[in-house]
Design a protein around this nucleic acid. Sequence first.
DNA 1: GCCAACGTTGGC
DNA 2: GCCAACGTTGGC
Length: 156
Amino acid sequence: MSIWLLKTEPAECGIEDIRNAEGGVMRWDGIRNFQARNMLRDRVAVGDLCLIYHSGVREPAIVGSADVVRAAYADPAQFDPASEYYDERSRPEDPRWFCVDIRFRERFPHPLPLAEIKRTAALAAMVLLRQGRLSVQPVSEAEWRSIRGLCGVRRG
DNA sequence: GCCAACGTTGGC
DNA sequence: GCCAACGTTGGC
């Protein structure tokens, strides 16, 4: 079992959108970065845990978690000319981009702002602080535990 | 709105 | 294969 941090702009798809999706299940699509794509395609597995991070807002923060309920499959948006994620170079027999399905797990009692992550020693090694732009990134179990504690989660 | 970081593209 | 130009992300 692995743990991931998934970045999203809440104006487009926030933690509440995941919660409110049918069955709490949301397709995590639109990833158009090769490094993130490779992790989605090769590493993200059913049962993995995900931290949901809100970016592009006044106070960027980790706000909740989800789990992976379907492993990588071809992102349908790459074949849809009407989609902003359309990619004319993609072929159905050789897709360039992948997506996974995640399911809402919890919204944390309080968010963990980026500013607080930066001043937390236990989180100093987080990929988020070194590769700020990577939208799918690995999280260690120790980081997961620290983050949940800081977010006011009692146990688990 | 600015700008730094960094990924991608394309000329050579 | 290098690297400059360009585009995008995302914090501030």
